[in-house]
């Protein structure tokens, strides 16, 4: 099914190949080897379950970057109707690394936007491999302000290695663009839901991620720094990315356990790309469920809810002054 094999999928792919050979052999020779086939099928299924249900943090990072994985635009097409795309930040350009517009989720009107990766060289150059420039964040802000004006809930889909670390990004103040989004997203009185669908790369992800609900796909990750970046700094060697991924506790499961994520959207065995319709359907129903809850809140309650959510994030100790002398 997939033409791109991750390192830990090799055994599975070999078994799949063998099974195919056996099947065609049986057809061509008109031989009954169904018991062998069943045996192999069972073995394959076992192997798939044991591999995919026990992915390590690093394997999940690899999965989240799988080139066949559905991207923001795929999900927009799969879960919404009548998508009206909105372009540009009205300041500098139309960054293709963040796309968005108005659409319907069933009958529910929403503003849906997200970071967009490319599938081939041409599209990757257009959207800069999913790394937004400052104008991407300013475009997102423009769209979200418009949604707030028309009282439409905001859905953000996150899939980026990070904001683009380039000369132009600095010249046009990418840090400021992200910071302003963080502040302004606390002022919108409509429900905001964000879904990490692939890579949740640091500030570049958070720049469209201040929401009332944070949902994470089963094999997506959300981290303060890429495992490679962390390895380069702490281990002084990028090849320790696997250790860094483990240490950073960046998987959907870790984030749910630590209260940073509100829900996990389950993926088909083998990852979202194996059945993108199924994962899109699950995502849609999860968004609608959370939206329905949020829509019972008043504007003021939504603002409080979002503030309190982020206000509570962070673990520290506080020694009372009388014990410290």
């Amino acid at each position: 099914m997939s033409t791109y094999v991750l390192p830990f999928e090799k055994t599975i792919v070999e078994l799949e190949k063998k099974l195919d050979e056996l099947r065609s052999f049986s057809e061509d020779q008109d031989l009954d080897i169904s018991s062998e086939i069943t045996k192999l099928e069972t073995k394959l299924e076992k192997e798939r379950v044991s591999t995919y249900e026990n992915l390590t943090a690093w394997q999940k990072v690899q999965m989240s970057r799988h080139p066949l994985r559905p991207y923001t635009r795929d999900y927009i097409h799969k879960i919404t109707t009548k998508f009206i795309e909105i372009h540009g930040d009205r300041l500098f350009s139309d960054d293709q690394a963040i796309i968005g517009g108005f659409a319907y989720l069933d009958k529910q009107k929403v503003m849906i936007l997200g970071t967009q990766k490319g599938r081939d060289t041409k599209s990757n150059l257009e959207c800069n491999f999913g790394c937004p420039y400052p104008e991407g964040y300013r475009k997102a802000l423009r769209l979200m302000k418009m949604a707030n004006k028309f009282n439409v809930p905001i859905i953000t889909l996150i899939d980026t290695p990070g904001a683009y670390p380039g000369i132009e990004s600095e010249e046009r103040h990418i840090a400021e663009a992200i910071a302003v989004n963080l502040r302004e997203m606390f002022t919108f009185s409509v429900p905001i839901i964000s879904v990490v669908i692939g890579e949740g790369g640091s500030g570049g992800a958070l720049g469209i991620g201040v929401s009332n609900r944070i949902l994470v796909l089963e094999h997506a990750y959300y981290s303060v720094i890429s495992p490679e970046g962390c390895a380069a700094i702490l281990w002084k060697d990028r090849s320790f990315a696997e250790d860094a991924a483990e240490a950073l506790k960046l998987t959907a499961q870790h984030l749910k356990d630590s209260g940073l994520a509100d829900g996990i959207i389950k993926e088909p065995l083998g990852g979202a790309h194996r059945d993108s319709d199924a994962v899109a359907a699950k995502m849609k129903s999860s968004i609608l469920k959370h939206l329905a809850e949020l829509q019972r809140m008043s504007s003021q309650e939504l603002l409080e809810d979002r503030y309190n959510k982020f206000r509570a994030m962070g673990v520290f100790a506080e020694t009372p002054p009388d014990e410290s002398s």
Partner: peptide, 16 residues
């Protein structure tokens, strides 16, 4: 980095 995603979220908290 030692605090993982918790540290990233301080950006949102302070901005809020």
């Amino acid at each position: 980095m030692y605090e993982g995603l918790f540290s990233l979220m301080q950006m949102a908290k302070t901005s809020g």
